[in-house]
Structure formats: structure tokens, C-alpha cells
């Protein structure tokens, strides 16, 4: 990470913040006022575009981001009655993600920042998810444990302080969302897999099949590849509903267990769930219930802020401004990007 991408300046609190998110298959533009109020959060999903190919096609994603970002931007300003001149800062996802897709957002944001002479706030997509619970829970303060689960990521993070994040563990192979998608594929349920597995699981018995709970008792790393293989092996003897229910339960058990263990080990009273897989209802319920039993506060964003969105990028960008971290015109797009890249 070239250091010239970031610079330090006097911490500030942008009154009106524009955020752009283009890391995967959603183009999103959001406006955040005073770090609290989401004035708008426009999301153009490309799901239908990619569904016919059975997964996200990077080349197609880039082209669509490019097509829709300008209309989306105009729409965001129009519906809120704001003008470019009203903006105090611009935040943008600069990774991790599909390189060409990220580049669309970064280029537009850099151009705007330069033309308007406003600070550019560099946001790590994962930090966007980490801070997404703040959108609806402004009282949330560090330290908290965040379980971040999506199609591309599965990790446990300790938010020690606003500028201090500790990656406790991540998946060694498939992300949780990816495992859902693969099981859906195996059972020919169609794309996207997550919601379809959840739907079918509701009709099945979560205890029908004794599936492994991978990496149980082995720190905070996750592994879902073996679980998928176990489902594959069991699929001859069991109904798709039972397979889905048992698989989903195995994933939930591992996620919940490790999250609670982290809260206990680090003596943290607050737990949050974020990312696209946070939309999985049984997972939300299981984690919430377990937190409640242990007297822990539980935070989960509403569905609109779980999937990729600009509002969470705005919120994470706001935190960058408060830390006095801005981007130089050298800001680049990155396919992979560690948490807190600006600190290294």
C-alpha cells in the first residue's frame, strides 16, 4: 500500500457527506448529514443482470456501474434538494472488491473531490460494514465485537476504538455466503443461493443430519468448505429441505459460538452482526437470543444496510474524517485491502 494514498490532517466533522460504493454488484450513492441522518441511500442492484450467468461477472459489473453511477448521483442530489456545492466531503470505497468495479467509484469520487475542492475520504468496504450498525444506533461505542458475514467475507473483528480494529479471525476458504450459494448450486435451487436455502430450510429439520461444526474450538478462524462437502455426501439420503436446514444450522452454530467466545475473551458487552448474510433471519435470531441470555447488547442493521450500500460507506467515511485521515489524489482501487490500511 503506497503511503501516498493517505494523508493526515486536522480531524473534522463533515456536515454533508456524499458516499459512493461500487465494490461488487451494487452501485450506491448516499448522503449523510452530520454523521447521523441518512438523507438518501440509493442502491441500483445488478442482481438480475448477473442472475442469468449464475454469479457476478466482473466485466459486466464494471460496465453497469459506469452506466448508472451518474444518473444515481443526480437522482440523489435532486431528491434531497442538494447541490454539489453543498457537499463538505466525499467518501468512496477503494477496496476490497472487483478491481474494475471499485475503480469506477474511485475515479468518480476523485474527480468530484478535485473539481469541488473538498476532502476525499478513503473507505475500506469491510469497515463500511463494521460501522453500519451506527446508522441506526448512534449510541453504539467501542469496544464491540463485530461478526461480518457476506458473500465474499466472513470475519470476526474487535472494534477496540474508532481508529483501532483487530481482526480476530477470518475464513480460510469459502465465505459463509458463498457456502450458502454453493449448497444452493448443489441442490439446484438457483441464484442467488442464500435466500433460497433459508426459505427451504424453514421447511426442514435442522437436526436431521449430523453435519460437522468446522473449526469448533480452534480460535476465531472459520472454514466452510468441508461443510459443503459433507452436505454433498449426505444429499442422496436426505431431502433438500433437511439438507438446507441442517446446513444452515451448522453455519449458525459455528458463527454464534465464535462470536460469543470473542465477546467473553475480550470482556466486551456489545456485539454486532453485519454484511449481506446478516439478512439471514435464523442467524439474526440465534445471535440475538444468545446475546440476550448473556446480558450482551446486540446490534444488527436493518436489511437495507446489511447488503452493500452507500450509507455505510458514508458512516465509515465520517469516522475517517473524525480521525483526520483523508485520501490524496493518488488514491487507487484495490482488489484486496487490509483493515486500517492507512495505519500501515
Amino acid at each position: 500500500m503506497p503511503e501516498s494514498e493517505f494523508q493526515r490532517q486536522q480531524p473534522f466533522e463533515p456536515g454533508l457527506l456524499l458516499a459512493l460504493e461500487t465494490s461488487c454488484d451494487e452501485t450506491s450513492v448516499a448522503l449523510l448529514k452530520d454523521g447521523r441522518q441518512v438523507l438518501c441511500n440509493r442502491v441500483a442492484s445488478q442482481e438480475e443482470l448477473h442472475a442469468r450467468y449464475g454469479g457476478v461477472v466482473p466485466e459486466i459489473a464494471c460496465r453497469r456501474h459506469f452506466e448508472v453511477i451518474h444518473p444515481l448521483l443526480e437522482e440523489a442530489l435532486e431528491t434531497t434538494g442538494k447541490r454539489f456545492g453543498d457537499l463538505d466531503a466525499i467518501a468512496v470505497t477503494h477496496g476490497p472488491g472487483l478491481i474494475g468495479a471499485v475503480l469506477v467509484g474511485v475515479t468518480v469520487a476523485k474527480t468530484l473531490a478535485l473539481a469541488l475542492d473538498k476532502p476525499l475520504l478513503p473507505v475500506n468496504h469491510l469497515e463500511g460494514h463494521l460501522f453500519s450498525p451506527l446508522l441506526e444506533n448512534p449510541e453504539l461505542e467501542p469496544p464491540w465485537i463485530s461478526l461480518l458475514v457476506s458473500g465474499g467475507h466472513t470475519c470476526l473483528v474487535l472494534v477496540e476504538d474508532w481508529g483501532s480494529l483487530k481482526l480476530l479471525g477470518k475464513t480460510r476458504d469459502d465465505a459463509a455466503g458463498e457456502a450458502f450459494d454453493k449448497v444452493a448450486k448443489m441442490l439446484q435451487l438457483g441464484y442467488p443461493g442464500g435466500p433460497r436455502v433459508q426459505k427451504l430450510a424453514a421447511e426442514g429439520n435442522p437436526e436431521a443430519i449430523d453435519l460437522p461444526r468446522p473449526m469448533r474450538g480452534q480460535g476465531y478462524a472459520f472454514s466452510f468448505s468441508g461443510l459443503k462437502t459433507a452436505v454433498h455426501r449426505a444429499r442422496e439420503q436426505h431431502s433438500p429441505a433437511d439438507l438446507c436446514a441442517s446446513f444452515q444450522q451448522a453455519v449458525i452454530d459455528v458463527l454464534v459460538e465464535k462470536t460469543l467466545k470473542a465477546a467473553e475473551e475480550f470482556g466486551v458487552q456489545r456485539v454486532s452482526l453485519a454484511g449481506g448474510v446478516a439478512a439471514n433471519q435464523p442467524l439474526r435470531q440465534a445471535l440475538e437470543q444468545n446475546c440476550r441470555q448473556r446480558g450482551l447488547s446486540f446490534y444488527v442493521p436493518s436489511f437495507e444496510y446489511c447488503t452493500d450500500n452507500g450509507a455505510m460507506i458514508a458512516m465509515a467515511g465520517y469516522q475517517m474524517a473524525r480521525l483526520g485521515i483523508t485520501a490524496t489524489t493518488g488514491l487507487d482501487a484495490h482488489a484486496s485491502l487490509p483493515l486500517l490500511a492507512w495505519r500501515t
Binding site: 461488487c24 450467468y53 454469479g55 457476478v56 469459502d174 455466503g177 484486496s336
Partner: peptide, 16 residues
């Protein structure tokens, strides 16, 4: 290629 960068392309069907 750094090892942890490689994931299955199921979700994103084309990785580089």
C-alpha cells in the same frame, strides 16, 4: 499469487 487471495469463483464467477 499471495495464497489468501484465492477464493472459489462461485459468487463472483470470474476472478483474476
Amino acid at each position: 499469487v499471495p495464497e489468501d487471495e484465492v477464493s472459489s469463483p462461485t459468487f463472483v464467477i470470474w476472478q483474476i
